[in-house]
Amino acid sequence: MDYFLELFFGGLTRGSIYALIALGYTMVYGIIELINFAHGEIYMIGAFTALIAASALSLLGLNGPALLILAGLIAVIYSAAYGYTIEKVAYKPLRKAQRLSPLISAIGMSIFLQNYVLLAQTSDFLSFPTLVDEFAFMEPVSHIMRSSELLIVATTLVSTVLLTLFIKFSRMGKAMRATAQDKTMAMLLGININRVISVTFIIGSGLAAIGGVLISNHIGQINFYIGFIAGIKAFTAAVLGGIGSVPGAVLGGLILGWTESFATGYVSSDYEDVFAFGLLVFILIFRPAGILGRSTKDKV
C-alpha cells in the first residue's frame, strides 16, 4: 500500500509539473494555434536562472526559503521576458505565413536556446542547492511524500486557481478568451491582439519557470537538455487533456504523471519515456481533440 501511495504521490508531483508547463502550451495554442516548441526551453531557462540567482544571492548571505522565493521570482521574471522576446522575434513576423513556418521557426528557436545555455554555462549537470528543509509536520508521511513534492503540488494548485480566476474575471482574461474564439472579431471589437498574445506568452512562460524552479529544488540537479523532454511530455499532457483547454492541461498533466509513475513502478523503468511518447502517439491517432477538447472542422 505504501508503495502504491508513493507512486501515487510521485505521479501527482510529476503531473503537476507537466501541468504547469502544459498550461503555457495550451494557452498559446488556444490563441495563435502554434505549437510553441521552444516552451520547454523556457522552463529550462527558468530553472537555470533560479540556480544562478540562488548561487549569486547566497554570496550575499541569503539562505533558506527566502532565497528560494527570491530566486524563483527572478526566474519567473526572466522566463517571462524570454517568452515575450521569443514571440516578438520568432513568431510575430510569421503571423501571416504558411502554417508550418512558425513551427519550424519554433524548432529553430528551441535548438538555439539549448545551445545558448550549453555554451554560456556548461553541458554538465549542475546541482541545485538545497534551500528548503523537510517540513516538520511532514515527518510521519515522509516515506511516501517528500516536502518538496508537497510544495510542487500546492504551488501548482494555487497557480492554476489564480490563472483560472484571471482568465474568467479579469479584463485581459476576457480579451484572451475572445481572441481565442475569433481573432478578427476580437480585433474589430477593439481588442489589442498583439498585447493579448504578448500577455499569453508572458503568463505561460512564468508558469513554466515556476515548474522549472520547483522541479530543480525537488530533483536537485539540472542541465541544458531538461527542457526538451519536459517540453514534449508537457505537450503530450496538453494534447491529452484537449489542447486549448486550461482544465484539460491540468487533467492531462496528472493523467500523464500517474501513467508514467505507475508504469515505471510496476512494469519497467527502462521504458519511462516510451510510455509517455506511446501515450502521445496513441492519443493523437485516436482522439486528437483530447479528453476535454472539441473537434473542429476546417472551413471550406
Partner: peptide, 25 residues
Amino acid sequence: FPVLRLRGDYLAIVTLGFGEIIRLV
C-alpha cells in the same frame, strides 16, 4: 497509415514521438 490523417503540426509531433520511441527501444 494511422498518423497521416492528422493535421500538419500534430503530424510533426507524432513523428517526433515515434522517432524517440524507436531510439529508446
